[in-house]
């Protein structure tokens, strides 16, 4: 293992051990009326994962999140590429996107519910709303920041429009687009779970809210732990790819 990789691994292990330690200290401080210890949480999570009902909620959340992310990515990319290339539209629309992005999305939830009703559609819509704008904003900048000299080089090599897009524009914009995807991924997940928490009959967010209502600390801690574990693992992998893409620029 190279020196840099060794240091990264050591730092990551130190961070995880530190977090577990803080968690344990908090448990000792707050007591089992408010939370569970790391060990009890892992034990309960394992037991919960052995039940069918957990997987029904899990796959419901996965389905909603995957659909929301697909919508956020496709719409975000389309809007971003369009506004990035079309300067006038970009100048008009970008400030509006930034303004909309700054609105707390939860205030839009009643409208989403009225439009989509309680259930899958509403949480997909709420997830997509969270992810689409950051993806669009990052894509706009990615397209605008493609260096002119690379486009001129493509022209000198007599590339067609499709070749230019495939061989020059898309790879050149890729690192920044990927950063947008990474940010959009996290926000879409938050949006989907929020959607499940307030207006759904299935999903991990719903499971969490039901547990809060029943003051079932075991379920609250186990579901939160599993969500953090999944989100942190995927985010770390995406961050590693992001760093790799940016290292070459």
């Amino acid at each position: 293992m190279s020196g840099a990789k060794g240091v990264s691994l050591r730092n990551a292990i130190a961070l995880i051990v530190g977090l577990i330690l803080v968690w344990q200290l908090l448990f000792w401080f707050a007591g089992d009326i408010a939370m569970r210890s790391p060990w009890d949480t892992v034990r309960y999570a394992r037991r919960m994962m052995g039940t069918d009902s957990f997987w029904i909620h899990f796959w419901e959340s996965v389905r909603a999140f995957a659909t929301a992310l697909a919508i956020a990515v496709s719409v975000g990319l389309f809007v971003g590429i369009w506004l990035g290339f079309h300067r006038l539209s970009g100048r008009v629309m970008e400030p509006m996107l930034v303004a909309i992005y700054s609105i707390p999305k939860i205030t839009l939830y009643p409208i989403v519910l009225l439009a989509f009703g309680i259930g899958m559609s509403a949480k997909i819509a709420f997830g997509a709303i969270h992810g689409v704008i950051p993806i669009a904003l990052f894509t706009i900048n990615a397209v605008r920041n493609v260096r002119i000299v690379l486009i001129k080089t493509g022209r000198v090599h007599k590339l067609t429009m499709t070749e230019m897009a495939r061989w020059v524009l898309f790879p050149a914009a890729m690192p920044e687009i990927f950063t947008g995807f990474r940010v959009g991924f996290s926000l879409t997940l938050i949006g989907t779970l929020l959607g499940e928490m307030f207006a759904a009959q299935r999903g991990l967010g719903y499971l969490l809210m039901t547990a809060i209502g029943l003051h079932n600390v075991d379920v609250i801690m186990a579901v939160t732990f599993l969500l953090v574990l999944c989100a942190a693992s995927v985010s770390t992998a995406l961050l590693a790819i992001d760093h790799r893409l940016h290292r070459r620029v």
Binding site: V149, K152, T153, V156, H157, E163, W167, P171, M174, L245
Partner: peptide
């Protein structure tokens, strides 16, 4: 053939791939 003042290497391609780009078509 044109060589520009600015760095016109494609950063996502290796040196060999950059050179081979001239022959892609």
């Amino acid at each position: 053939g044109v060589v520009f003042q600015e760095d016109a290497c494609f950063p996502w391609l290796s040196v060999a791939e950059n050179v081979a780009f001239g022959l892609r078509k």
